[in-house]
Protein backbone atom coordinates (compact mmCIF):
# COMPACT_ATOMS: atom_id res chain seq x y z
CA UNK A 1 0.00 0.00 0.00
CA UNK A 2 1.07 3.51 -0.79
CA UNK A 3 1.16 4.76 2.77
CA UNK A 4 3.56 2.27 4.21
CA UNK A 5 6.83 3.86 3.21
CA UNK A 6 5.88 6.86 5.33
CA UNK A 7 4.23 5.05 8.18
CA UNK A 8 6.71 2.32 8.98
CA UNK A 9 9.68 4.47 10.11
CA UNK A 10 7.45 5.92 12.79
CA UNK A 11 8.05 2.68 14.70
CA UNK A 12 11.51 3.94 15.46
CA UNK A 13 10.30 6.99 17.40
CA UNK A 14 11.40 5.36 20.62
CA UNK A 15 10.51 2.81 23.22
CA UNK A 16 7.27 4.56 24.08
CA UNK A 17 4.48 2.44 22.52
CA UNK A 18 2.10 5.38 22.22
CA UNK A 19 4.52 7.74 20.47
CA UNK A 20 3.67 8.54 16.87
CA UNK A 21 5.32 10.44 14.08
CA UNK A 22 3.10 11.85 11.35
CA UNK A 23 5.43 13.22 8.73
CA UNK A 24 7.35 15.84 10.69
CA UNK A 25 4.86 15.95 13.56
CA UNK A 26 6.02 13.93 16.57
CA UNK A 27 3.53 13.30 19.37
CA UNK A 28 3.94 11.42 22.66
CA UNK A 29 0.60 9.75 22.03
CA UNK A 30 -2.00 9.75 19.26
CA UNK A 31 -4.79 11.57 21.13
CA UNK A 32 -5.39 15.12 19.91
CA UNK A 33 -8.10 17.49 21.15
CA UNK A 34 -10.21 18.26 18.07
CA UNK A 35 -10.46 21.79 16.77
CA UNK A 36 -13.59 23.66 17.81
CA UNK A 37 -14.23 21.54 20.87
CA UNK A 38 -11.34 22.66 23.06
CA UNK A 39 -11.27 26.44 22.66
CA UNK A 40 -7.74 27.83 22.76
CA UNK A 41 -6.61 25.58 25.62
CA UNK A 42 -7.14 27.35 28.95
CA UNK A 43 -10.88 26.66 29.04
CA UNK A 44 -10.38 22.98 29.89
CA UNK A 45 -7.20 23.42 31.93
CA UNK A 46 -9.09 23.08 35.27
CA UNK A 47 -10.15 19.58 34.24
CA UNK A 48 -7.48 18.19 31.90
CA UNK A 49 -3.67 18.05 32.08
CA UNK A 50 -2.94 19.55 28.69
CA UNK A 51 0.64 18.26 28.77
CA UNK A 52 -0.71 14.69 28.79
CA UNK A 53 -2.51 15.11 25.49
CA UNK A 54 -0.82 14.23 22.23
CA UNK A 55 -1.68 17.69 21.00
CA UNK A 56 -4.31 20.40 21.17
CA UNK A 57 -5.91 21.60 17.92
CA UNK A 58 -7.23 25.07 18.63
CA UNK A 59 -10.41 26.70 17.37
CA UNK A 60 -10.17 27.84 13.74
CA UNK A 61 -8.33 31.13 13.28
CA UNK A 62 -8.95 33.56 10.41
CA UNK A 63 -7.17 36.69 9.18
CA UNK A 64 -9.81 39.07 10.59
CA UNK A 65 -12.29 38.34 13.39
CA UNK A 66 -15.32 36.30 12.32
CA UNK A 67 -18.68 36.77 14.05
CA UNK A 68 -20.01 33.23 13.69
CA UNK A 69 -23.68 32.34 13.38
CA UNK A 70 -26.77 33.47 15.32
CA UNK A 71 -27.78 31.29 18.30
CA UNK A 72 -29.04 28.72 19.09
CA UNK A 73 -25.80 27.12 17.98
CA UNK A 74 -26.09 23.60 19.40
CA UNK A 75 -28.78 20.94 19.47
CA UNK A 76 -28.47 17.49 20.96
CA UNK A 77 -29.47 14.57 18.74
CA UNK A 78 -29.57 10.82 19.37
CA UNK A 79 -25.93 9.76 19.85
CA UNK A 80 -24.76 13.09 18.56
CA UNK A 81 -24.63 16.83 18.53
CA UNK A 82 -25.48 19.39 15.87
CA UNK A 83 -23.56 22.64 15.97
CA UNK A 84 -23.60 25.80 13.91
CA UNK A 85 -20.99 27.93 15.66
CA UNK A 86 -19.85 29.27 12.31
CA UNK A 87 -16.13 29.62 13.06
CA UNK A 88 -16.45 32.56 15.42
CA UNK A 89 -12.93 33.66 16.31
CA UNK A 90 -11.06 36.83 17.22
CA UNK A 91 -8.67 36.73 14.26
CA UNK A 92 -5.03 35.72 14.01
CA UNK A 93 -3.54 38.86 15.60
CA UNK A 94 -5.57 38.49 18.78
CA UNK A 95 -4.86 34.76 18.79
CA UNK A 96 -1.10 35.38 18.66
CA UNK A 97 -1.28 38.06 21.34
CA UNK A 98 -3.78 36.56 23.80
CA UNK A 99 -3.86 32.80 23.28
CA UNK A 100 -0.51 31.54 22.00
CA UNK A 101 1.44 32.58 25.13
CA UNK A 102 -0.71 30.28 27.27
CA UNK A 103 -0.36 27.40 24.82
CA UNK A 104 3.43 27.80 24.62
CA UNK A 105 3.82 27.23 28.34
CA UNK A 106 1.14 24.51 28.61
CA UNK A 107 3.61 21.74 27.76
CA UNK A 108 1.52 20.32 24.93
CA UNK A 109 1.86 20.20 21.17
CA UNK A 110 -0.08 22.91 19.37
CA UNK A 111 -1.98 22.49 16.11
CA UNK A 112 -3.40 25.75 14.77
CA UNK A 113 -6.53 25.30 12.67
CA UNK A 114 -6.70 27.95 9.98
CA UNK A 115 -9.67 29.21 7.97
CA UNK A 116 -10.24 31.75 5.23
CA UNK A 117 -12.81 33.18 2.86
CA UNK A 118 -10.31 33.19 -0.02
CA UNK A 119 -7.22 31.20 -0.93
CA UNK A 120 -5.16 34.28 -0.15
CA UNK A 121 -6.64 34.61 3.34
CA UNK A 122 -5.61 31.06 4.24
CA UNK A 123 -2.10 31.81 3.07
CA UNK A 124 -1.93 35.09 4.97
CA UNK A 125 -3.00 33.43 8.23
CA UNK A 126 -0.28 30.80 7.76
CA UNK A 127 2.22 33.52 6.90
CA UNK A 128 1.38 35.48 10.04
CA UNK A 129 1.82 32.33 12.14
CA UNK A 130 5.30 31.82 10.67
CA UNK A 131 6.49 34.64 12.91
CA UNK A 132 5.37 32.77 16.03
CA UNK A 133 7.19 30.07 17.96
CA UNK A 134 5.45 27.20 19.70
CA UNK A 135 3.29 25.95 16.83
CA UNK A 136 3.81 22.31 15.91
CA UNK A 137 1.50 22.00 12.91
CA UNK A 138 -1.14 23.82 10.89
CA UNK A 139 -4.50 22.26 10.14
CA UNK A 140 -6.17 23.76 7.08
CA UNK A 141 -9.93 23.67 7.52
CA UNK A 142 -11.56 23.34 4.11
CA UNK A 143 -14.52 21.44 5.46
CA UNK A 144 -16.59 23.40 7.96
CA UNK A 145 -20.23 22.99 6.92
CA UNK A 146 -21.30 26.10 8.81
CA UNK A 147 -19.91 28.84 6.61
CA UNK A 148 -20.73 29.37 2.95
CA UNK A 149 -17.60 31.01 1.62
CA UNK A 150 -14.32 29.48 2.60
CA UNK A 151 -14.89 26.58 4.91
CA UNK A 152 -16.58 23.81 3.04
CA UNK A 153 -16.58 25.55 -0.35
CA UNK A 154 -12.89 24.74 -0.75
CA UNK A 155 -13.33 21.20 0.44
CA UNK A 156 -15.90 20.13 -2.09
CA UNK A 157 -13.86 19.72 -5.21
CA UNK A 158 -10.31 18.51 -5.72
CA UNK A 159 -9.11 21.59 -7.61
CA UNK A 160 -10.14 24.11 -4.97
CA UNK A 161 -8.84 21.89 -2.19
CA UNK A 162 -5.49 21.67 -3.96
CA UNK A 163 -5.38 25.44 -4.53
CA UNK A 164 -5.73 26.18 -0.83
CA UNK A 165 -3.24 23.49 0.12
CA UNK A 166 -0.66 24.75 -2.37
CA UNK A 167 -1.08 28.34 -1.22
CA UNK A 168 -0.47 27.45 2.42
CA UNK A 169 2.31 25.02 1.54
CA UNK A 170 4.09 27.85 -0.24
CA UNK A 171 4.42 29.93 2.92
CA UNK A 172 5.21 27.34 5.59
CA UNK A 173 7.53 24.41 6.22
CA UNK A 174 5.57 23.39 9.28
CA UNK A 175 3.75 20.04 9.18
CA UNK A 176 0.61 20.73 7.18
CA UNK A 177 -2.63 18.91 7.95
CA UNK A 178 -5.65 19.30 5.67
CA UNK A 179 -9.03 18.51 7.23
CA UNK A 180 -11.43 16.73 4.90
CA UNK A 181 -15.19 16.96 4.59
CA UNK A 182 -17.52 13.95 4.60
CA UNK A 183 -20.09 15.99 2.69
CA UNK A 184 -18.73 15.03 -0.72
CA UNK A 185 -19.35 12.13 -3.06
CA UNK A 186 -15.66 11.19 -3.46
CA UNK A 187 -13.46 12.01 -0.46
CA UNK A 188 -10.60 9.95 -1.92
CA UNK A 189 -10.32 12.24 -4.95
CA UNK A 190 -10.03 15.26 -2.69
CA UNK A 191 -7.55 13.50 -0.43
CA UNK A 192 -5.33 12.62 -3.38
CA UNK A 193 -5.46 16.15 -4.77
CA UNK A 194 -4.55 17.61 -1.39
CA UNK A 195 -1.70 15.14 -0.89
CA UNK A 196 -0.28 15.96 -4.33
CA UNK A 197 -0.56 19.66 -3.53
CA UNK A 198 1.79 19.27 -0.58
CA UNK A 199 -0.20 18.27 2.49
CA UNK A 200 1.84 16.22 4.97
CA UNK A 201 -1.11 14.80 6.87
CA UNK A 202 -4.88 14.50 6.38
CA UNK A 203 -7.51 14.72 9.09
CA UNK A 204 -10.91 13.17 8.49
CA UNK A 205 -13.68 13.80 9.04
CA UNK A 206 -15.20 17.19 9.79
CA UNK A 207 -18.86 17.22 10.81
CA UNK A 208 -21.68 15.88 8.65
CA UNK A 209 -24.16 18.51 7.50
CA UNK A 210 -27.64 18.09 8.95
CA UNK A 211 -30.50 19.86 10.69
CA UNK A 212 -33.03 19.51 13.49
CA UNK A 213 -36.52 20.86 14.07
CA UNK A 214 -37.63 22.42 17.35
CA UNK A 215 -41.21 21.19 17.68
CA UNK A 216 -42.00 23.73 20.42
CA UNK A 217 -41.38 26.56 17.97
CA UNK A 218 -42.06 24.63 14.74
CA UNK A 219 -38.82 26.12 13.43
CA UNK A 220 -35.36 24.86 12.57
CA UNK A 221 -33.65 24.26 15.93
CA UNK A 222 -30.43 26.02 14.97
CA UNK A 223 -30.21 29.76 14.30
CA UNK A 224 -28.30 29.01 11.11
CA UNK A 225 -30.90 26.35 10.08
CA UNK A 226 -28.29 23.70 9.20
CA UNK A 227 -25.35 22.53 11.26
CA UNK A 228 -22.62 19.94 11.53
CA UNK A 229 -23.33 16.61 13.17
CA UNK A 230 -20.68 15.10 15.44
CA UNK A 231 -20.54 12.38 18.07
CA UNK A 232 -20.96 8.58 17.91
CA UNK A 233 -23.69 8.93 15.28
CA UNK A 234 -21.04 9.74 12.65
CA UNK A 235 -18.41 7.18 13.65
CA UNK A 236 -19.28 4.66 10.93
CA UNK A 237 -19.09 7.39 8.30
CA UNK A 238 -15.70 8.48 9.62
CA UNK A 239 -14.33 4.95 9.76
CA UNK A 240 -15.30 4.31 6.16
CA UNK A 241 -13.64 7.49 4.93
CA UNK A 242 -10.48 6.92 6.98
CA UNK A 243 -10.29 3.34 5.70
CA UNK A 244 -10.63 4.40 2.06
CA UNK A 245 -8.48 7.52 2.18
CA UNK A 246 -5.62 6.04 4.21
CA UNK A 247 -5.15 3.28 1.65
CA UNK A 248 -5.31 5.66 -1.28
CA UNK A 249 -2.75 8.26 -0.18
CA UNK A 250 0.88 8.04 0.86
CA UNK A 251 0.58 10.35 3.86
CA UNK A 252 -0.71 9.74 7.40
CA UNK A 253 -4.36 10.25 8.27
CA UNK A 254 -5.75 11.52 11.56
CA UNK A 255 -9.12 9.92 12.27
CA UNK A 256 -11.98 12.00 13.71
CA UNK A 257 -15.62 11.22 14.34
CA UNK A 258 -17.47 10.04 17.41
CA UNK A 259 -14.48 8.67 19.31
CA UNK A 260 -15.41 8.11 22.97
CA UNK A 261 -13.26 5.20 24.17
CA UNK A 262 -9.86 3.56 23.72
CA UNK A 263 -11.66 0.86 21.71
CA UNK A 264 -12.93 3.52 19.32
CA UNK A 265 -9.35 4.77 18.94
CA UNK A 266 -8.08 1.30 18.12
CA UNK A 267 -10.83 0.88 15.53
CA UNK A 268 -9.64 4.04 13.80
CA UNK A 269 -5.99 2.93 13.99
CA UNK A 270 -6.61 -0.43 12.40
CA UNK A 271 -8.83 1.26 9.79
CA UNK A 272 -5.75 3.23 8.80
CA UNK A 273 -5.52 6.30 11.03
CA UNK A 274 -2.09 7.14 12.51
CA UNK A 275 -3.59 9.31 15.26
CA UNK A 276 -7.04 10.56 16.23
CA UNK A 277 -8.83 13.71 17.25
CA UNK A 278 -11.36 13.55 20.07
CA UNK A 279 -13.99 16.25 20.40
CA UNK A 280 -17.64 15.93 21.28
CA UNK A 281 -17.15 13.47 24.15
CA UNK A 282 -15.05 16.08 25.96
CA UNK A 283 -18.18 18.16 26.56
CA UNK A 284 -19.66 15.42 28.70
CA UNK A 285 -16.40 13.89 29.98
CA UNK A 286 -13.62 16.48 30.08
CA UNK A 287 -11.11 13.88 31.33
CA UNK A 288 -11.94 11.26 28.71
CA UNK A 289 -8.91 11.94 26.50
CA UNK A 290 -6.59 11.32 29.46
CA UNK A 291 -8.52 8.16 30.37
CA UNK A 292 -8.12 6.91 26.80
CA UNK A 293 -4.37 7.57 26.91
CA UNK A 294 -4.17 5.59 30.17
CA UNK A 295 -6.18 2.68 28.74
CA UNK A 296 -4.55 2.45 25.33
CA UNK A 297 -1.31 0.52 26.10
CA UNK A 298 -3.16 -2.42 27.66
CA UNK A 299 -5.72 -2.45 24.88
CA UNK A 300 -2.99 -2.51 22.23
CA UNK A 301 -1.29 -5.43 24.01
CA UNK A 302 -4.54 -7.35 24.31
CA UNK A 303 -4.89 -7.16 20.55
CA UNK A 304 -1.29 -8.16 19.94
CA UNK A 305 0.19 -4.79 19.06
CA UNK A 306 3.44 -3.58 20.61
CA UNK A 307 2.80 0.01 19.56
CA UNK A 308 0.28 2.36 18.02
CA UNK A 309 2.25 2.28 14.80
CA UNK A 310 1.93 -1.47 14.52
CA UNK A 311 -1.85 -1.20 14.64
CA UNK A 312 -2.13 1.38 11.87
CA UNK A 313 -3.91 -0.13 8.90
CA UNK A 314 -4.10 -3.63 10.37
CA UNK A 315 -7.61 -4.02 8.93
CA UNK A 316 -6.53 -3.24 5.38
CA UNK A 317 -6.89 -6.03 2.81
CA UNK A 318 -3.77 -8.16 2.70
CA UNK A 319 -2.82 -7.42 6.32
CA UNK A 320 -2.87 -10.26 8.79
CA UNK A 321 -5.35 -8.34 10.93
CA UNK A 322 -3.27 -7.98 14.06
CA UNK A 323 0.16 -7.92 15.56
CA UNK A 324 0.16 -11.59 16.59
Amino acid sequence: MAGQADLTPAGSVGEEPLAVRLGGLCLPNPIIAASGTFGFGPEYAPFVRLSRLGAVAVKGVSLDPWPGNPPPRVWETPAGLLNSIGLQNPGVEVFCRDDLPFLRQAGTRVVVNIIGKTVEEYARVAERLEREAGIDALEVNISCPNVKEGGIAFGQDPEHAALVTRAVRAVTDRPLIVKLSPNVSDPVAIAQAVAEAGADILSAINTVVGMAIDLERLRPALGAVTGGLSGPAIKPIALRIVYEVSQAVGIPVIGIGGIETAEDVLEFLVAGASAVMVGTVTFRHPRRMEEIIEALPALLRRHGFRSVNEAVGAAWPGRSGGGR
Binding site: E43, P71, R73, V74, P286
Partner: peptide
Amino acid sequence: EQRMGCGVGACLACVVPAAGAAMPPW
Protein backbone atom coordinates in the same frame (compact mmCIF):
# COMPACT_ATOMS: atom_id res chain seq x y z
CA GLU B 1 -29.86 31.50 29.55
CA GLN B 2 -28.91 30.04 26.18
CA ARG B 3 -28.53 26.59 24.62
CA MET B 4 -25.17 25.52 26.02
CA GLY B 5 -22.47 23.08 24.93
CA CYS B 6 -19.27 22.68 26.93
CA GLY B 7 -20.15 25.04 29.81
CA VAL B 8 -16.54 26.17 30.20
CA GLY B 9 -16.10 28.71 27.40
CA ALA B 10 -14.53 26.45 24.79
CA CYS B 11 -17.21 25.72 22.21
CA LEU B 12 -18.79 29.17 21.79
CA ALA B 13 -22.32 27.77 21.54
CA CYS B 14 -24.13 29.73 24.25
CA VAL B 15 -23.59 33.26 23.03
CA VAL B 16 -25.77 36.32 23.55
CA PRO B 17 -25.38 39.64 21.70
CA ALA B 18 -22.79 41.99 23.21
CA ALA B 19 -23.29 45.73 23.53
CA GLY B 20 -21.06 48.11 21.63
CA ALA B 21 -18.76 47.33 18.74
CA ALA B 22 -17.18 44.15 20.06
CA MET B 23 -16.01 41.75 17.35
CA PRO B 24 -16.96 38.91 17.51
CA PRO B 25 -20.19 40.58 18.70
CA TRP B 26 -21.08 38.12 21.44
